[in-house]
Nucleic acid binder design. Sequence first.
DNA 1: ATTAACTTTGCAATAGTGTTGCACTAACTT
DNA 2: AAGTTAGTGCAACACTATTGCAAAGTTAAT
Lengths: 137, 137
Amino acid sequence: MENKEIDKKLESKNVKPTAMRTLVYKTLAETGKALSLADLEQRFEKVERSTIFRALKTFEENFIVHPVDDGSGSVKYAVCDDECTCNIHDLHVHFYCTRCGRTRCMKELPIPNIKLPEGYTYDNAQFIINGVCPRCD
Amino acid sequence: MENKEIDKKLESKNVKPTAMRTLVYKTLAETGKALSLADLEQRFEKVERSTIFRALKTFEENFIVHPVDDGSGSVKYAVCDDECTCNIHDLHVHFYCTRCGRTRCMKELPIPNIKLPEGYTYDNAQFIINGVCPRCD
DNA sequence: ATTAACTTTGCAATAGTGTTGCACTAACTT
DNA sequence: AAGTTAGTGCAACACTATTGCAAAGTTAAT
């Protein structure tokens, strides 16, 4: 993905594209997986943890990435689709491979509609499936 | 719940009932919610974190409690049903209230059956719904 | 262009969760 | 009762997430 393209994308979501943000976004988009802060940190070496952290938070607030808590101990982040507003209708299943630790967005599997008992309202959900991915099988 | 009853239960799952374990189990069973290590720690004051921690791990290994990672930052634990073997068929939805931070097992809502793409196998899942519970509404 | 105002970044420090080694004590075995 | 095993408390530590502050970079206004 071109840097210019990324910058446009960020701007379209009201986030000023800086070198670091572009880099973080690019990495997330190119790997196509959900990555944790530590994952990202390793990939660049030079960049400060807090800088990446704040980039992710900014992205999250502006619906550029969504957080995935796969139970691995650290929250991971994956790029949202263009139309994503991170509301309940955009949610999808995530698959966590217990062998390689990789987390994959299963955008083709939307979170099933659940009928909660009387009195409960919801606005978000996480559906993590743990198992073994084809690569590790 | 009687202590004797608890002790029987623990023994039936091959866990030796000690004073601490009985206490931890009792608390989990009586509150009827999923509690974190920190939650439990607060309730007793006197008892060591690591002791509670190890009690929970022991319970988990022996299918006496199941862990719930509701995204609050700390894993919580809830008592299993009698017949629970913590395999994929025993799994149920958990509801995390974003106002009060309480996590409730929705045993009446089993995790829906998901058809994964070719090549993926699974053995566990977490389905957390975030919203507001009746108490907080 | 220069200064002022604001934003982003890097660094250092901190809080909280989870986890382990070790020594001490309690419980169980023979 | 002596020896072995299991459980507990304490202290230490690793790691993730998070924040305050100061330096550097960017933008806007004169």
